[in-house]
Design a protein around this nucleic acid. Structure first.
Length: 274
DNA sequence: ACCCAGGATTAAG
DNA sequence: CTTAATCATGGG
């Protein structure tokens, strides 16, 4: 089927969206063109001035990609216009979207992301897809739970997953018995609790899966960068759990959107050591 | 050689 | 409920 979306950098900026640590199998080549696999579909994103072209080949149609890029949500209307920190973070990355990805793919990617860097996360995910995913003309589709279940802990380890290989094997096995559509129907709090039952999924990873895989905008993943951002930009103190609770009161149902803009702003402006 | 990377798990206080 | 040690691997 496939689809082509003609957008602009105000509604979708690939350079900020695709480089902001939400997804790991889409990369920019030497000429500035983004390409990669999303599920079993191959996508290309090109920018010419303020015009953006999103081209997808595969089974997903235009309505799927509109949801994937979260195009029908007005971020400015959801976030406090009187919060100067938030407004600064938003104007720093206009057109950055919070992606709505496949739940299982987001789960696996988020498990691998723990104590890891973006480049290596993508490399491991590609290796897993090449090892058990369906081959296409442009790359390997991300595997289904059943396909991934054919790999052992030793396989995951040899593919570079390191100590996360144990988590992957257990969480894939649990995924075989999981109805992801049923999980999607749960409210955020309940979903977060259910996700913690997967191996390798702690509070932060559960929030990533809830936000990027299930579209729960109340989720507020707190990693080292978000702890840094909330401390230096808002003067907050305390543990990640405490910071997450305060963010819930500050940003409400749009916490996840705020988180993505603050995360991106912090990585670009705040020093790594503090 | 040392440190870090979108942390989670386990054991112990 | 809180804190420290440990967990592979590649790149700076």
């Amino acid at each position: 089927m496939g689809a082509t979306l003609e957008l602009n950098t105000q509604t979708f900026d690939p350079d900020t969206t695709l480089a902001s640590g939400q997804t790991f199998r889409i990369r920019k080549d030497g000429s500035g063109v983004w390409s990669g696999m999303v599920g079993g579909d191959h996508i290309v994103a090109m920018r010419d001035g303020n015009r953006v072209l999103w081209k997808a080949e595969g089974s997903r149609d235009e309505s799927y990609w509109r949801q994937y890029l979260d195009l029908d949500r007005d971020y400015a209307a959801l976030l406090d216009p009187n919060d100067p920190v938030l407004q600064r973070a938003m104007s720093f990355a206009p057109g950055m979207r919070v992606l709505r990805q496949d739940p299982f793919e987001a789960l696996i990617g988020s498990i691998i992301s723990a104590n890891n860097n973006v480049a290596r996360i993508g490399k491991i995910l590609d290796a897993i897809a090449d090892a058990c995913g369906t081959r296409t003309d442009h790359g390997s589709a991300f595997p289904t739970p059943a396909q991934m279940a054919r790999l052992s802990e030793a396989d995951f380890r040899s593919l570079g997953a390191g100590y996360r290989a144990t988590y992957l094997e257990k969480s894939v096995a649990r995924s075989l018995d999981t109805d992801f559509n049923a999980l999607a129907a749960l409210p955020y709090k309940t979903l977060h609790h259910e996700l913690l039952a997967f191996a390798g999924v702690g509070p932060k990873v559960a929030d990533c899966v809830a936000l990027f895989g299930f579209g729960k905008t109340e989720a507020f993943p707190v990693d080292v960068w978000m702890a840094r951002a909330m401390r230096q930009l808002y003067g907050l103190e305390g543990t990640p759990t405490r910071i997450r609770a305060m963010a819930e009161e500050m940003f409400g149902a749009a916490a996840g959107i705020a988180q993505q803009y603050l995360f991106h702003y912090a990585r670009a402006h705040l020093p790594r050591g503090s």
